[in-house]
Each structure stands twice: as structure tokens, then as C-alpha cells.
Simulated scan of single mutants.
Amino acid sequence: MRVLVVDDHPLYREGLITALEALPDVEVVGEAPDGHEAVRLAAELTPDIVVMDLNLPARDGGPALNGIDATREIVRHRPETAVLVLTMLDGDDSVFAAMRAGARGYLVKGADRQEIARALRAVGSGEVVFSAAIAGRVLSWFASGGRAATMPFPELTEREREVLDLVARGLTNAAIAKRLFLSDKTVRNHVSNVFTKLQVADRAEAVARARDAGLGSGG
């Protein structure tokens, strides 16, 4: 199996690569420290599997491409490449957002080499795999008919969702800054990140998406 490793922490990435290369059927063909590089290398190196962290940083002062969005891009362009998430994030929002983006597996950091090896073989064979703790929650969600309450736009941070809610209520950036005790620049950055993550072109489109999802109804 040809594997691309994506993680922003050099020491963890190095250790993971060493562990993977010790497996007899794994060849690590590349490594990426951020989402943009992950998408580029996935297209260039055509790996069988991408081991993907979710909390990825911005690069060169540009917008960040988190692991969920990077997964979506990779799967969209290379559906034959399996994405196995390996991350510290274990919340339901992150799990379901990753699976909706096309990931075939989800492990939490701390998984041992044997668990990672089993997961690689599973996703490489077209199966879906979760770590034990997450699998129980996923099964419970399906057992309840998928009725578990989930926050809209799980790709957004809590602060970005709060800003979007206020945008959907019709507040200007200056009014949002005053309401949240933030600088105008910080609010502009949050709004820009929201537009990028939701792939909307302008404020009106963002408001429409937000209201469709139930935001902006607080008056």
C-alpha cells in the first residue's frame, strides 16, 4: 500500500512514518504538513491511502485548509484514494463531518501500531473502520435512526459559527465586533474563513445557507 501522511507536527509525523515503514506491506510515498500540500501531493503521488490529521494550519499566511476540507478535495479528485483520519479530535461533529467528506476510517491519536495497521488494510480493501470508542457512538447514532442532534456546519469552529449566526441576523462586521468584544480585523478574518469553508461567494449567499440551517433566528 502506498501511503501519504498528513500531519502538522513534525515529530509526530516522523514517528508515524517510521512506524508505518516498519509494516511489511506499506510504502510511505510522501508527507505533508498542511491541507493544501496534502491535496497537491495526493494528485501528484497517487497514493492508495492518505493518513489525515484534521487540525491543520494555514500556510504562508494564506487561508487554512483543514483536514475535513482536504479530505473532500482529495476524494472528489481521486475517489480511488482512501482517506484514514488519525487525529486528536474525537467529537461527534468532527467524526460525522469527516465521514461526510468521504473519509473511510477514523482513528484517534494514541492508537497503537497494530490498530493503525488493521485500519490501513481495512480502508485499503474498501471497508470503513472506526476506533473502538468512536464505533460505539456511530452505532448508537444509526440505531437511533440518525436523530442525534448535530450542530450545523461542523467544519466551522464554534466562534466562526457564532459569527455566522450574527451575520445571518443582519449584523454588520462592526456590530459583530462590538457584540463579541473582538477587533474589526478579527471579525473580518472570521467572516472570510466562513466564506471559504462554506464555499460561498458573498454575504448574501452565506446568510441564505445559514438561515436554511436554522441560524440567524435569534432576533
Rank of each mutant, 00 (worst) to 15 (best):
M1R: 05
R2I: 06
R2T: 14
V3M: 11
V3Y: 07
V3N: 07
V3R: 08
L4A: 03
V5Q: 00
V6N: 01
D7G: 06
D7M: 10
D8F: 09
H9E: 13
P10C: 11
P10S: 11
Y12P: 02
G15E: 01
G15Y: 05
L16W: 01
T18G: 09
A19L: 15
A22P: 08
L23R: 05
P24T: 10
V28F: 10
V29N: 03
E31V: 09
A32P: 08
D34M: 00
D34F: 02
H36S: 09
H36R: 15
H36P: 03
A42D: 02
A42K: 03
A43T: 12
A43Q: 12
E44C: 06
T46R: 14
T46I: 08
T46L: 11
T46Q: 12
D48I: 04
M52T: 04
D53C: 10
L54C: 08
L54E: 06
L56Y: 05
L56F: 02
R59S: 12
R59K: 14
D60P: 07
G61R: 03
G67H: 06
G67W: 04
G67C: 08
I68V: 14
D69L: 14
D69E: 13
A70Q: 08
T71A: 01
V75I: 14
R78W: 09
R78S: 13
E80S: 13
A82I: 07
V83E: 00
V83T: 03
V85E: 01
G91K: 12
D92N: 13
D93W: 04
D93P: 04
V95Q: 08
V95A: 09
V95G: 06
F96V: 12
F96H: 12
A97V: 07
A101K: 08
A103F: 09
R104A: 10
R104P: 03
G105Q: 03
G105D: 08
Y106P: 03
L107C: 06
V108I: 14
G110F: 06
D112V: 00
D112F: 02
R113W: 01
I116F: 08
I116K: 07
A122G: 09
V123K: 03
S125L: 10
S125K: 11
S131H: 08
G136L: 12
G136P: 09
W141A: 07
A143R: 14
S144T: 15
A149H: 15
T150Y: 13
F153E: 09
R159W: 02
E160L: 09
E160M: 12
E160K: 05
E160V: 03
E162A: 13
E162P: 05
E162N: 11
L164D: 04
D165T: 13
V167C: 06
R169D: 06
L171N: 03
L171K: 15
T172A: 12
T172K: 11
N173Q: 12
I176N: 05
I176Q: 01
I176K: 04
A177P: 15
R179H: 14
D184Y: 09
T186M: 10
V187N: 07
V187D: 07
V187T: 07
V187E: 03
R188E: 15
R188L: 10
H190T: 04
H190I: 06
N193A: 15
N193K: 13
N193Y: 05
V194C: 07
T196I: 11
T196H: 14
K197S: 07
Q199R: 15
V200L: 11
V200Y: 04
A201R: 15
A201N: 12
A206D: 10
V207N: 05
R211S: 11
D212V: 14
G216K: 04
S217H: 12
G219C: 11
